[in-house]
Design a protein around this nucleic acid. Sequence first.
DNA 1: AAATGAACCTGTTTGC
DNA 2: TGCAAACAGGTTCATT
Length: 278
Amino acid sequence: MPELPEVETVRAALQLAVAGKKIKRLSHAAARLRYPLDPDVISRATSGRMVKAFRRRAKYIVVDFDDSINDCLVLHLGMTGSFRLAAKGDPLGTFDHVVWELEGGEQWIFTDPRKFGEVAVEQAAAGEWPERFAGLGPEPLSPDLNTGYLINRFKGRKQPVKTAILDQNIIAGIGNIYASEALFRAGIHPGRAAGNISRQRIEKLVLAVKSVLEDSIASGGTTIRDFKSLEGKEGYFSLCLDVYGKAGDPCAKCGKKATIRRVKQSGRSTFYCPGCQR
DNA sequence: AAATGAACCTGTTTGC
DNA sequence: TGCAAACAGGTTCATT
């Protein structure tokens, strides 16, 4: 469900609603999500601590606490994960897997039907990222993602450019929606070998990646069916999608000339316009 | 090494 | 209409 813009939307909402509050205790924890969950570890790492800030790296949300212990909470929404705040005593649903009671009784709840999400405790010094993030590619909205970098990473690769930009170790945070959308904006065919794209067109791709993510964040992300931010709000970038989920529709750019096509790449759907993507 | 496919799990949509 | 197959925004592990 959530790619960088959706995760960023959730992070910002959590920062407003939860940062500065103290966690009283872990009141519920399922046996496992993507990985087995150790309630003792999570409880010890969170109970009685004041939440200082929510940071984001790739599609991960990292929770920092307001003390000098060098650890943090790492959260991942998987495909269907979401957070919500509920009043004291509100009943839990089947898929409410992790629940913290905040000071005052409010419940901070992680829900995830498919259980692809993650809640974990990691070591990290203040301002640093956990060691496990070391291999992640640059944040797409930072200057670290630039033409020179991408040319280097693409060099010699026969892999289709769509699967390449989906690789979190090449660029962090792009998912299946924005991979298709960015390639459309850049006019690049998703099946083209990553190592076979001119410098000029890679420059276009870098700009396209940044613009599509920025535009989506400004719209609160994309809701196809599940995505909701903390307050239950949907993201309306769905209205701005050019190709994702639009197989058979006429291309917005070249009009009647071509219709959007759907193909499979590495087991995942890719949408593109055969008319304006080369 | 690089690239693809399967697996994890549940709900919803599509197609015969 | 009914049922089974396909599909869904992600990541990791196994296999070629």
